[in-house]
C-alpha cells in the first residue's frame, strides 16, 4: 500500500498490518475444509438421528468428507514457506511434547484436523464395511455405542473444521478479518450448505428421496442464515466493507455469492421442477460455486488491501 495514503486515518487500525499472502492454496483448502466439515456434520446427524434408509447418503457424506480433507489438508503444508517443517505444528521441537496453544487458531485447527481425520476415517471405513467393501470388523465403528461416539465425533469435529477457518481470520489484525467476529459463523454456515450440496450432487440419484429432501432443507437453512450473517457484517463494519469489498469484490459478492450461490438455489428448492431432473444437481452446483466464491472473496479481498 502507498504509505502516503495512510496519513489520512483509515477506516480501521487493521489497515496498518501487512498481508500474509495467503493465496489460492488457502482459498481451495478453506473451500474443501468447509465441504469436508459440512458433510461430516450432516452425515453425523443422519447417522445419529436418521433411519436405516438414510444410511446410503450417510456413507456418501463420510466418503466426501474424507476425500475432501485428504485433498485439502496437504495444501496447508504446500503453502508453508518451509513445508519440511510442518511437523513443528504437532510436536515441540525444543523441549518435546505435543505442540498446542489454545489461543492460536492455527494450532487449534491442526488438532481439529487430526480429530476430524480420526473420526471421519473410522466412520467412512465403517460405512464401507457395512456394505462389504471393507473388512467386516470395521463395521463395529458404525454400530451401537461406538457408532454413536463416532457419529458425535464427526458432528463435533466437522462443525469445528468448517468454522475454525473463520476463526483463523478473526484472530488476525487484517482489514475485514480482524474487524468482525462473524466470519467463523459465516464459514460454518457456508461449509454446511456446501457439504450438503456435495452430498446431494453425488448422491441425489442413489440416496433416499427423504434424505435428499432433508439435506435440501438443511442447505436452505444454512444458506438463508448465511445471507443474514453477510448483512450483519456489512451493517456492523460498513466503513471497512465499503473499502475492502469495493469494485470487483463487491460484484463477486453480490452476483456470485448472493444471487447465484444463495438466492438461486433457494428458488430452485422452492421450484423443484424449474429445470426438470437437472434442478436438484444444478442447485447443488450453484451452492458449491457460491461457497467457493465466498471464500475467494473474503480471503483475497483483504489480501488486496
Amino acid at each position: 500500500m502507498d504509505g502516503l495514503l495512510l496519513q489520512v486515518a483509515p477506516p480501521s487500525p487493521t489497515f496498518f498490518s501487512l498481508s500474509p499472502e495467503w493465496g489460492w492454496y488457502i482459498v481451495v483448502y478453506f473451500f474443501l475444509g468447509g465441504i469436508a466439515g459440512g458433510a461430516a456434520f450432516l452425515s453425523g446427524l443422519l447417522d445419529l438421528l436418521g433411519e436405516r434408509l438414510d444410511r446410503r447418503m450417510t456413507r456418501i457424506g463420510y466418503l466426501i468428507a474424507l476425500a475432501a480433507i485428504i485433498v485439502g489438508g496437504p495444501l496447508l503444508i504446500i503453502d508453508l514457506t518451509r513445508p519440511e517443517r510442518f511437523w513443528h505444528m504437532f510436536w515441540r521441537s525444543d523441549v518435546g511434547g505435543p505442540m498446542f496453544k489454545v489461543y492460536s487458531p492455527l494450532s487449534i485447527g491442526v488438532w481439529i484436523i487430526v480429530g476430524f481425520v480420526l473420526f471421519v476415517g473410522l466412520a467412512a471405513l465403517a460405512s464401507l464395511a457395512d456394505v462389504g467393501r471393507f473388512p467386516r470388523w470395521f463395521a463395529r465403528f458404525g454400530e451401537g455405542v461406538p457408532g454413536k461416539i463416532v457419529a458425535i465425533g464427526c458432528i463435533l469435529t466437522g462443525s469445528a473444521l468448517a468454522g475454525y477457518t473463520g476463526l483463523v481470520l478473526t484472530g488476525t489484525n487484517r482489514p475485514l478479518w480482524g474487524d468482525t467476529i462473524w466470519i467463523t459463523l459465516l464459514f460454518l454456515l457456508s461449509g454446511i450448505s456446501a457439504g450438503g450440496a456435495a452430498m446431494i450432487l453425488f448422491g441425489w440419484r442413489r440416496g433416499h428421496p427423504g434424505t435428499v429432501h432433508w439435506l435440501e432443507e438443511m442447505e436452505g437453512y444454512s444458506s438463508a442464515l448465511e445471507l443474514i450473517v453477510l448483512a450483519i457484517i456489512a451493517a456492523t463494519i460498513w466503513s471497512v466493507v465499503r473499502v475492502v469489498w469495493g469494485g470487483v469484490w463487491g460484484a463477486i459478492l453480490l452476483f456470485g455469492v448472493i444471487v447465484f450461490g444463495i438466492l438461486a438455489p433457494i428458488y430452485l428448492h422452492w421450484r423443484p421442477g424449474a429445470f426438470g431432473r437437472a434442478t436438484v444437481p444444478l442447485a447443488a452446483v450453484l451452492v458449491l460455486l457460491g461457497s467457493f466464491l465466498l471464500r475467494t472473496m473474503v480471503i483475497l479481498s483483504s489480501e488486496a488491501v
Binding site: L18, D79, H88
Partner: peptide, 20 residues
C-alpha cells in the same frame, strides 16, 4: 530454526512489522 512459514504472525501484527 523453528519457524515453518505459516505467516499467521504477519497477519497478527497490528504494526506491519513481520514478513518472510
Amino acid at each position: 530454526d523453528v519457524c515453518n512459514g505459516c505467516r499467521d504472525c504477519i497477519a497478527a501484527c497490528p504494526f506491519g512489522v513481520i514478513e518472510i
